[in-house]
Design a binder for these strands. Sequence first.
DNA 1: CATGACTCCTGTTTGC
DNA 2: TGCAAACAGGAGTCAT
Length: 272
Amino acid sequence: MPELPEVETTRRQIGPAIVGPTIREVTIHPGAERLAMTHSPRELEGELTGRTIESLDRHGKYLVATLDDGRSWVLHLRMSGSLVVTQSSEPDRYERARVVFDDDTILRFNDLRKFGTWHLVEDARDAMPNAGPDALSEEFSARWLREQLARRSIAVKSALLDQKIAAGVGNIYADEACYIAGVDPRAASNSLGPRRVVRLHAAVIEALERSLVDGGTTFSDYLNGEGEPGLHRINVHVFRRDGEPCGRCGRTIQKIRLGGRGTHYCPRCQRR
DNA sequence: CATGACTCCTGTTTGC
DNA sequence: TGCAAACAGGAGTCAT
């Protein structure tokens, strides 16, 4: 559910509260055992207890907490996860784990669908072996995108969803980027000319950054680090707007299925 | 190699 | 209205 802008919003909100204090207690609740990917739940609780977080970074949709022992605690929210810092100790309905710090800060990991993951590893890259350049980093360049699109013939949207190509882009922003660039999401990746690739590259960044300044997009269950929904929904051009008129040309926005994912586009503004 | 189906869960929406 | 199937901001695995 959360994509790059939502994860980055979460990072900015919870980072100041959880970087510094010592972890006093970690609890992975019953039924959420699968959260712990690299250790048993009890082991992971024990390994994290007593540690402090020196920095909280993000790569794609992963959050990376660097611990004082040099290891990385890598968290992924998957479809329905959220991280919230609160004062109240009342558990949220879908709280799957919590971390209590020695200054009484409480970090909750809420996750209705239980797809979220925690890795504790020596090197953060070990927890995200398929992550390519972060979509908002310098490494994600127009040249990189051109080279990656050229070497395959998959649908453009499928390429944007490939974390090896652009880490952090998910279903919302893949659709939005295709719309902004005027590219049919079904177009073959190696069929785009250089100018269209440059447009698409700029569109990916524009879609992500426009959402980021609004604190991310919320459709149903995403909550940011303060437990509030993002405001970006009003700025989405096509995602989940099928049946509504295109803001640019007025044609009805269509919804199709592409690579197993719901895909939204304007049949007039977006061409192959 | 590359695609597509299936899987992990639980709640909501859609369609008959 | 009722009920079941489909669908949901993700991504790994396993056939084909």
